[in-house]
């Protein structure tokens, strides 16, 4: 029964979502508000499902691994539980939840992402090579932009900003414009395939 309903409902709701954009009438806005309501709730459920899947995976690791292998998933689950319990008593900055965020999660996240600067430097030293014409062009473009975006580079090579601006506003705009147009065409085609049930959970055998 539900399976038979899935595809018609997708066509109905997807079609309505397209049409309401062109209908400035109050009825159209009411329908749009309901669709948004549904979308937000379902996407929230999807995010919760993702986190629950992570919890299940870590529980499985705790059950199956040796003692040394169990420590890390247990740490992960423990810290998640600490955050969840703290969250029950309020989520503002003045609560335990806010304090845990500010003094533990915030420095960890910031430090983790900042590690990429070190790895990137090591990678450019070892892998950024002038081995072909396209690679050479990419490298020259990168060098120009790297130097032109800093005051020191502008002082060392006075005209470099002009060249970098030309790169950004000329070839860069052209390439990204080509990519945006291609992406737009592909996304519209995919959207219609999803709405019509050719692709996605209601059809095509894939989810």
């Amino acid at each position: 029964m539900l399976r038979a309903l899935t595809r018609p409902l997708a066509i109905l709701l997807g079609g309505a979502a397209i049409l309401v954009y062109f209908v400035p009438h109050q009825a159209g806005q009411w329908v749009e508000a309901r669709l948004v309501d549904w979308l937000v709730l379902l996407q929230a459920a999807a995010l919760v499902a993702g986190i629950l899947a992570l919890i299940r995976r870590q529980l499985a690791r705790v059950r199956s691994g040796s003692l040394s292998q169990r420590i890390y998933p247990m740490l992960m689950l423990g810290s998640m539980a600490a955050m969840l319990i703290a969250g029950l008593f309020g989520t503002t900055a003045a609560t335990a939840f806010g304090a845990l965020y500010g003094s533990v999660l915030q420095p960890i996240q910031a430090s983790m992402l900042s590690l990429l600067a070190f790895y990137m430097a090591s990678a450019v030293f070892r892998s950024f090579r002038l081995t072909s014409a396209p690679a050479t062009i990419l490298l020259i473009s990168a060098l120009v932009v790297l130097l032109a975006r800093i005051p020191l580079g502008e002082q060392m090579i006075p005209r470099i900003s002009v060249f970098a601006t030309w790169i950004i506003r000329g070839p860069n705009v052209a390439a990204t414009r080509g990519l945006w147009i291609g992406m737009g065409l592909a996304a519209v085609a995919t959207a219609f395939r999803v709405i019509l049930g050719v692709q996605g959970p209601s059809g095509g055998g894939r989810s």
């Binding site: 600067a117 990137m120 430097a121 450019v124 030293f125 070892r126 950024f128 090579r129 002038l130 490298l139 990168a142 060098l143 790297l146 130097l147 975006r149 800093i150 005051p151 020191l152 580079g153």
Partner: peptide
């Protein structure tokens, strides 16, 4: 922070140049 950004960018450029020189 732009002064620190400047020296880091110059270092990256030098790493690319030296890395290629070493490779060739």
């Amino acid at each position: 922070a732009l002064s620190a950004q400047s020296t880091a960018h110059v270092l990256l450029v030098l790493l690319i140049v030296v890395g290629n020189a070493s490779f060739f």
